[in-house]
Each structure stands twice: as C-alpha cells, then as structure tokens.
Write a protein that binds this DNA or RNA. Sequence first.
DNA 1: ATATTAACGCGACAGTTGTCGCTCTAGGTC
DNA 2: GACCTAGAGCGACAACTGTCGCGTTAATAT
Lengths: 214, 214
Amino acid sequence: MTDPLDTTSDRRPGGRTARIRAQVLDAVRAELAERGHEGLTVEGVATRAGVHRATVYRRWRDVGGLLVDVIAAAGEIDWQPPDTGSLRGDLTALNQEIQESLVLRPSFAVALMAASFHSEQAARAQTQLWTDRYTQCEILVERAIERGELPAQHTDARSLLIAATAPLYHQLVLLRSDPDPHLPERAAQAAVLAAAAGAFSVRREEGRERGDGQ
Amino acid sequence: MTDPLDTTSDRRPGGRTARIRAQVLDAVRAELAERGHEGLTVEGVATRAGVHRATVYRRWRDVGGLLVDVIAAAGEIDWQPPDTGSLRGDLTALNQEIQESLVLRPSFAVALMAASFHSEQAARAQTQLWTDRYTQCEILVERAIERGELPAQHTDARSLLIAATAPLYHQLVLLRSDPDPHLPERAAQAAVLAAAAGAFSVRREEGRERGDGQ
DNA sequence: ATATTAACGCGACAGTTGTCGCTCTAGGTC
DNA sequence: GACCTAGAGCGACAACTGTCGCGTTAATAT
C-alpha cells in the first residue's frame, strides 16, 4: 500500500521532499491570488515553484490535488465553531465567516468547488471538509437545547445547520449576487424560527436512518 | 453590431445554418448523456455532429456557449411554477422538481454549474436562468398571502424562495449526499414555518433597496 | 437566372497538457 | 564515510485545444 499520491506519508520526509512541497503549495497560493481559480494551472505552479512539471504531476496528479493539499496544509485542524451565547448569534457568526470566505479574493472555497467538478480527488476532499465542519457545528444546536432555546424534543442538528447556511452559498455562488451584509443574520434568524416551530424535530424511529452522511 | 456569437440573430437563418445548429445541439445532448458534463468537449461534439471544429468554435466559442444554447433551445419558455393550493404544497412540488433535475443523469443543471466556473457566458446564462425562475415563483408567495397562509405584512418572496430551495442544492451539489426523498418536503416546510413566524417580513423602508438583483 | 456574401469545410499551425523512461541528487542507513 | 534508493530533474513525446487564412457552398437579393 505505497500510494504515491499520499502526500502525508513519510516514507522519506526529510529536507528536500518537505521543501519541495512547501515551495509548491506556496506557489499554488500565490497563483491563486494572482490569477484566480480559473487561471490556476499545473504548469504555472511548477514554474513559479521552480520545480519541474513532472514532479507536480507525480505527487499531486492535477490541480484538484494541489488544492486539496493546500486545504489540508492550511491547518483546518484548529477551527472552532463560534460561541456567542445564543443560537441565533452563533449561526449569524458562522454565516458571516462563510460569507467572508466566499467573498474574499481569492476564495479557496470557490476554487475548491470549481475543482471538484473536474477532479474526483477534490470532490471527495470537499465533501469531507463540509461534513467535518457540520459535525463540529452540531454542538451549537446541543448548547441551544440545553439553554432551552429549542423545543426539548430531538432536533436534527444537521438539517438545521444546512438550512441556516445554504442560502449563503446559493446567493453568492449560484446566483452570484452582490454580498448582502444583512443576509448572514437573516438566514440565521429564519433557521432559528423554523427550528423553534419544530421544523427540524425528528420522530424517534424514522429520522436517523441515513445520518452517517454520504 | 454584428455579433458573430449571437446564435439567435437571423442574418441568414435559412436551411443550412439552422440545420447545423440542430445537429450540434443534438450532439451536445448526446455527448452529455454518454460522457457526462466533464467529458463534454468541443472536439467530441463537432465530430459527432459531423461538423468541423472551427465551425463550433466560431459560433459557440466554448463548451459553456454550447450549454447555454442547449438550455435556451430547451424551451424554458413554457415553464410554470406549481399550483397545488397551499404554499407548503407548492414549495414541496418545486423542490421535487429541483431534486429530480439535479439527480437526473445527465443533469443539465449540474453541467451548467460546472461550466459556469469556466465560461463567463455560461455564468451569465445561469444567473439569468435562476433569476427568471425565482421571479416567476414569486406568485406562489403572493397567492399564499391572499389565502391568509402568511402574515399580512409584506414578505420578501425572494428570500423565502431561496430559503426553501437552497438546501436542495447544498445537499446534492456541494455535499454530494444521496438524494433524500423527504428532503423536498422538509425544506419546504421549514421555510413555511419560518415565514409564518415572520422571518422574511420586511420593514417599509429598509428592506428592498437591492431587490432588482444585478 | 445571376450576383452577392454569410457561413461552413479544410488543413496548417502554435500553444498547452499530461506521460514516460532515463539520469542524477540527496536523505536516510549502516 | 560509503552505500542505497526515494524522489527530483530532464527532455522527448503524443494528444488535445484553439486560431487563422483561404477556398467552397448555398441562402438570399435582384
């Protein structure tokens, strides 16, 4: 099981290998910043990194692989969901973060989405990323229940979170409308109201049969 | 103003031009069905249509342009929003349509999204398509208000519609989860509950300043 | 019918993308 | 210090992509 594409395996983690990786990932970030995600090309990255094309193709396979590794390297480990003291506040803060990440130039999130249509690797990384984030955010809902902000019966945290955040992506990515400073709060508020009305409550037996995701 | 890319201009609409267009668009649909959106290439379309590459490049510029024209040709004129007698029913039906269009193989909707990351032309066509659809759907909300299903104060129809439909795209396109037969109804119901609680009501002066949307 | 010309066919072309076999370098091991 | 070998460099290569100029066809105008 010596996967030549596993960039985290440490078969020979020493100086050069790590140095090349750093150079290449730096180059990816720089190219992304300069040319945007549609101008991101293996050739460009390799040249900027001062590395031969074949090296990049061997280790990362394609542009999607590069983005995956950039995301992986970008920490992603120490992210914590907001904690403002209220569900509405938490969701609003979360949405503001999302809006920022989508509006930011360059947007890694948008680049990853674009790549995921062409690279299976990128697609998997993306669903993994989202799944993890949503799992981490379930605590927001649990805290809200403890505070009594939501009805005591079980609430499907995932559905609630998606309802709160989906409009952001819809507006900014699909509809490409200008960012609306009120949208994060409005979307959060709508989800909270729906939840309070029991929109995401789930009956004992039938609700959770596909909860493990993908 | 003789735009060589305006496929609807009728400078010489006679037999051959129209025939070539039909051949090419048929080929696009066939290629899409066989190879999916990532296998859709100008070369492949031209070959299958029995037409020279240069012809396709001249008239449609790129894959995005082809998709745009397919969409344009696919009617889109006679679509009508559902009318089931209740807001919840209407939104559920709408969501079911959306889910179907996203799950269908090949999915023109997904192909268009993918193309819109690379082709400015496709991107514009996409936002135009969505904007039109949402505008058409505003009548659902108006009818609901007349029926007394929503509070009498003005409701921002667009926001409500987006809240109802966005989770579908989020789940199926971004999260790539398996289609959930209950999701269309759940998402619709959540939006209705939020609306009933006043989540999308808008104050007189501050709500509509960006309503015309690009 | 005949003239006009928009639009297609054709082939050549440069630029890009991705692969492969080989050599060489330098990280790790003894 | 001397070896081993994972992994980078290198250049050749085929396949693909998009553009261009020119000749031809056929839709329209007269």
